[in-house]
């Protein structure tokens, strides 16, 4: 049967015009291009301190020599955008003689936020860097790297004599949100184990007034 048919087969032109197909595809591509987000959002973990009073009293006494506070400030323009962002910091708890705010900015320099944090977190960073070298050479896997870093961080936070930064991030109401996130991000970059987001206390306000000559929130 099949052979019979074959012998009688006429030769058709097998070419198909693809133009409508292309048209349709282009439309679909346009649709997908307009409807998609290539930029997927990422997340940054954050743990907030409790605002229940009974728990506040059990505040852990931190070593003042390791404490470092960042005060983020700025102004809000008439469109409701935070501009003129400024970062100040002081070491210790701010009660000792001569405590004052120093201005600092983001960047890679020695006296920028990162340089300072790295300087204060030398011991841990050295360990992390060694692990990083190993990871780069392919001696340890990704998961082992992360696990070892966590272990090192844990060890450091349990060692009460270790020199490590304990960072308090204190944004004022006018601080730029992006700066807060950036500072939180610096904590991750520099493997700072202990940091917290806090409101300004009385001491901070006093220092702020000393530095800027006007009270917090006043202009």
């Amino acid at each position: 049967m099949a052979k019979k048919d074959k012998s009688r087969q006429k030769k058709f032109d097998t070419r198909i015009d693809f133009t409508p197909m292309v048209d349709m595809n282009m439309l679909l591509i346009t649709f997908f291009m307009l409807c998609t987000t290539m930029l997927k959002s990422q997340t940054l973990n954050l743990i907030l301190p409790t605002n229940k009073n009974e728990d506040k009293e059990q505040d852990i006494k931190i070593q003042q020599s390791n404490a470092i506070s960042f005060i983020l400030d700025g102004t809000v323009d008439k469109n409701g955008k935070a501009i003129n962002s400024k970062i100040y910091y002081y070491a210790g708890d701010g009660t000792e003689e001569g405590a004052a705010l120093t201005e600092i900015n983001f960047g890679n320099g020695k006296d920028a936020v990162r340089g300072m944090l790295q300087d204060r977190n030398k011991a841990l960073l050295k360990e992390v860097n060694e692990l990083k070298e190993k990871w780069k050479k392919g001696e340890i896997a990704d998961s082992t790297f992360n696990k070892k870093v966590k272990e090192a961080q844990k060890k450091q936070s349990e060692d009460l004599t270790a020199k490590r930064p304990i960072v308090m991030i204190k944004p004022t109401a006018n601080a730029c949100y992006a700066d807060v996130v950036r500072l939180l991000d610096e904590m991750q970059i520099n493997y700072v184990t202990s940091f917290m987001l806090q409101p300004l206390n009385k001491q901070d306000s006093t220092l702020y007034e000393q530095k800027l000559g006007h009270a917090l929130g006043a202009k």
Binding site: Q42, N45, V181, R182, D185, I189
Partner: peptide, 9 residues
């Protein structure tokens, strides 16, 4: 805001 953290939403 931009950050280096790469944990997905």
């Amino acid at each position: 805001p931009p950050a280096t953290s790469d944990a997905p939403v």
